[in-house]
Every structure is written in structure tokens, then in C-alpha cells.
Amino acid sequence: MATYSTNEFKGGLKIMLDNDPYNIIENEFVKPGKGQAFNRVKVRNLKNGRVIERTFKSGESVEAADVMETEMQYLFSDGSSYTFMHPETFEQYIADEAATESAAKWLKEQDVCVVTLWNDVPLSVAPPNFVELKIVETDPGLRGDTSGGGGKPATLETGAVVRVPLFVQEDEVIKVDTRTEEYVSRVKT
């Protein structure tokens, strides 16, 4: 079992706490001049995203979480689970709904995503930062309108809904930033 000592703590380190994998966000060394030393860390639970604070006695060892981030290609979904493939080993990994919760609405077959594996099981899936998706439904816009102004909702082929400028039409392909969930541009097809 791999362990980390508190003096190896830094942002990004993956550790086990109460049987869940966590990512260290911040580590602060706390020591009264004439007192005991502690490490106060802010950590994110990699299963549910919750952030908590926790103190360790300095010098203590903590179990490392076997967590790895790997780029994988999204293959298909059967509705409740999502199958990904490692581009080099061609090994397939099945992610459940919990792991794909926030990514699912952006996933298009063949896209390359970052899959976080914990003990070799997908824990979470991050969609590409930018995706190109076809609009399947939106109100017809007004002729001559420019990209300024309010915009309108558009439903994309994966089911995601984003606001687009009024001049963008059904069947057009658009580029979306998945981090902000915002329209970026039209894509010529």
C-alpha cells in the first residue's frame, strides 16, 4: 500500500480518507511556535465533488489513492452506462451514471475525454473543453440579425441545451465550451 507523509502534501495529490478517494486542493502547515505541528488540508471528494477540511498531525502517513487520469475515446452508451476505450491498449472501461453525470450531455461517440480511474474503475469523466455538436431544435431566427443581443435556446444532438445567437439555425454545427456551457461559434461543415 502506497502512502504519503504529510510533508509530501501538495495540491493535486490523491489520498484516501474514510474509504473515499480525495484530491488535495490546499495544504497549510500550522504550527504554534512552541506547540505541535499540524497539516490542515482542504480536499475534494472525487466521488461526489464535496470539499471538506481536515487536519493531520505533521509527520503522519496517509494512504495514497490509486487514481489516474487517462484520455479515452467514448464509444457508446446503453442508456445507463457509458463505454470508453483506451487509445493504446484498446481496453474498454464502463462508467456508470454517477461517473458521467455532468459529462453525459456533451458526449458524442468518438470524442476523446479525460477519464479518472480509481482502482481501475471510472470514477469521473470530463468532456473535452470544446465540443462540436449539431443543433437538432431551435426557433427560426430573424433575418439580418447579428450575433449581439439576447439569443435563444437550442437543443443539441446530445440533448444539451445552450443559448445561441438568433441567426444560428437548425442542422448547423456549433462549437461549445463545456466548462462555461456557452456557445463559441458556428462550425462550417
Partner: peptide, 8 residues
């Protein structure tokens, strides 16, 4: 020794 961090 071994005091290193934001305040150390």
C-alpha cells in the same frame, strides 16, 4: 527543521 509552509 521540518517547518515549512505558508508561515514557515
Amino acid at each position: 527543521k521540518s517547518e515549512s509552509g505558508r508561515w514557515h
